[in-house]
């Protein structure tokens, strides 16, 4: 059984844009193979439920939002809810993307959250990117990618599990001069966003009632707990992905 264009649009697997004008896009060619014409697709489409409750209006031509990206499935609990796409070309304006949620409100969830359901796993590493999580997995850990630092759905899911100890492995990238200026104006500490997110996530987990151990992997500029992940040559550790690319892949 296949899926309708309505369903694909509804769940964000097909999006419409007025800027797409050529027929070079793969999804358009696929739809044309199945009997549609470009003019038939191009016109506005309107889908209604119960005459007035839900209205989906699509303008322009369809395209696949994850085009030219390496994609990873995102899950809420045991069910897949969305996709995360990482651009494979350099200098992309939008390097990270999730499926659009224009027509439904289901949260995107996190990557590899299925490890929470395994009682044999004692430690779970939380990273803000999937690429970092791949490194953790290669090192022998069990990663969860929460895709950004504000995914409270996944954090809440972790807290409700309350079975595993948690390693927080957010990035430690340097602040740009503009960000430094902004932090001074707003009164924030001069810390990278990943470090602030580490503090925030730990606090959020405790607020949700999480009582197991929380360990900071990369957080070594704040707090009393020292990070367990250090770089031997004294350089600043930015994130797992960059470290793996530069050094780690040659050791493991």
């Amino acid at each position: 059984m296949g899926w309708t264009l309505t369903q694909l649009t509804y769940y964000g697997l097909v999006a419409f844009s007025k800027n797409i004008k050529t027929v070079d896009y793969s999804i358009l060619q696929l739809l044309c193979k199945h009997g549609m014409t470009p003019t038939g697709i191009c016109r506005n489409k309107q889908y209604t439920v119960n005459d007035e409750t839900v209205e989906i209006i699509c303008e322009g031509l369809p395209y696949f939002p994850l085009n030219n990206r390496v994609t990873f499935p995102l899950m809420v609990g045991q069910r897949m809810s969305s996709f995360y796409g990482r651009a494979i070309w350099k200098n992309s304006k939008v390097p990270h993307i999730k499926l659009p949620r224009k027509h439904h409100s289901t949260p995107p969830g996190g990557w590899n959250t299925a490890v929470l359901a395994d009682p044999r796993i004692e430690h779970v590493s939380v990273t803000e990117a999937v690429i970092d999580g791949l490194v953790i997995d290669r090192l022998g850990g069990y990663p969860i990618g929460i895709i950004g630092t504000g995914n409270s759905t996944t954090i809440c899911e972790i807290a409700l599990g309350k079975k595993q100890n948690i390693y927080l492995g957010y990035d430690n990238e340097e602040l740009s001069p503009a960000e430094l200026k902004l932090h001074k104006e707003t009164g924030k500490p001069d810390l990278p966003p990943g470090q602030l997110a580490t503090e925030r996530t730990a606090k959020l987990l405790r607020d949700f009632g999480y009582k197991e151990t929380i360990t900071y992997l990369t957080h070594y500029t704040l707090g009393s707990e020292n990070p367990i992940w250090k770089v031997s040559d004294g350089s600043i550790f930015k994130d797992f992905g960059a470290w793996w690319k530069d050094k780690g892949q040659f050791f493991f």
Binding site: W3, Q7, L8, Y11, L13, P73, V76, G77, R79, M80, S81, S82, F83, H104, T106, P107, G109, T153, C156, E157, A159, L160
Partner: peptide, 14 residues
């Protein structure tokens, strides 16, 4: 999180 549900059809299409 117990109230966050993904519908079966949503899971199936993904």
């Amino acid at each position: 999180a117990t109230n966050i549900k993904v519908s079966p059809e949503h899971h199936r299409i993904m």
